[in-house]
Structures are given as structure tokens and as C-alpha cells.
Simulated scan of single mutants.
Amino acid sequence: MEEVVLRLKELLFPSIADVAVLSVDVDIEIVRVDAQCIADGAVCPVCGVWSNRVHGSYLRFPADVPSGGRSVVLQLRVRRFTCGNSGCARRIFVERIPGLTRRHGQRTERLRSTLAAVGLALAGRAGARIARVLGASVSRSTVLRLVDALPEPEVPAQRVVGVDEYATRKGRHYGTVLVDIETRRPVDLLPDREASSLAS
């Protein structure tokens, strides 16, 4: 039995240490995975002091990546610890499992990144429809919010820049657009078409 539980842990959480799978319950529509953190203690997020004094625990139910068209929900038991630093502003804190969940998160990091990738490819409505087909029911607003939360990509320095003008009100208000010629992406929009704005 212990070997089966270890294989389930390797299958479900291959890159996450200190998480043990206790049981898996498969239903017609939902797969429930009972898991908990098995680390000896945790580090206080405010002062950074290590603590192994358990104050209590509670259950979290983050959604995970669907499996075989079924929704996967973790029943994750997380512990509260008492901070060992008497001068710390936070006396009790909750253990964090990096790579699995975020603070106050309703989804695992894997599901967040999957939905964000679907949103990048298909945007809101179409992304929500594909996510529903895959087994993760989310709204189009959630898909767009996950895409919006992604960090801005690194933009390399432009070597060749094209300059053109655009009209906000034809015949009255004009601006300048700068375009990276190699990638064909806009670099900047200037509010006018003066040479001094372009030079700066």
C-alpha cells in the first residue's frame, strides 16, 4: 500500500517536495485527492524564523488540473504554526507549499498556468469554452484575469525602429507611433508629432 501511495505522489506532484498523498477518491465527475504537507516545520513569512510548534490545522480545497475529463480537487490539510520570535508582529502563520498553491488561491499553480496558456492562445470566451471541455469550468473573466496577472515579457532592445504618425481625430490631432521593424510590434505611442518628442 505504501508503494502505491508513493507512486501516486510521484504521479500527482512530481516536482513538489514535502507533500504526501493520503488517499484518492474517484467519482463519476470529480477526483478528490487527500494530501498534506509532511515538512517538520515552516518559516514565518514576516520575520523568517523557523518554527515547528503546530498551533492547529484546517482544510483547503484548491482545484487542480483535470484528469480524464474529470475535475480534480485537492483536500489539502495545512497547518498553522506559532512563530518562535517573540518580537514578530505575526504570532501565528500558515505553512506555504511553494509550487502547489498561493496565499488565498482557489487553484493550484499547475491549473493557473494551464488556464493562463489557454487564455493567451484563445482569449476569454473561447478559452473558457475549451477549459470547460477539458474539465476545468471557469468564466471568461477568470481566464482574462489570469492572463492579466502574467508578468510582462522581457523586451529586447530594439535595433531598427520605424516611425509613423496616426490620427486620433483626422485633421486635428495626430500622434507618433514607434514600431520595432524586426518583430513588427509597436514600441511606443507618442501624443504628438513633434520632433522634440521623437528625439527624447
Results as ranks from 00 to 15, higher is better:
P191Y: 14
A123R: 08
N85K: 03
I16K: 06
R7I: 09
L198Q: 11
I38W: 04
T168H: 12
G162A: 10
K9F: 01
R159Y: 05
P66A: 02
E182W: 12
I181M: 09
V147S: 04
N52I: 06
G41M: 10
T142V: 13
A35S: 07
E95I: 06
A63P: 09
A149C: 11
E154A: 09
R140T: 14
A35L: 03
V94A: 09
F93I: 02
E109G: 06
A126R: 13
A89P: 07
E3I: 15
Y174R: 05
D192M: 07
W50P: 03
K170I: 08
C44N: 06
A157E: 13
S15K: 15
I28Y: 04
E152Q: 15
V78T: 14
L22M: 08
V143R: 02
V26H: 07
S67Q: 07
L146I: 13
V138P: 01
S139G: 14
G84T: 03
S23G: 13
S51K: 04
A128P: 02
L11G: 05
V19M: 04
E154L: 11
D188S: 15
G162S: 10
F93Q: 03
R96D: 08
T176W: 00
F13K: 00
S51Y: 02
V147R: 01
E2N: 13
I30A: 12
C88H: 04
C88W: 00
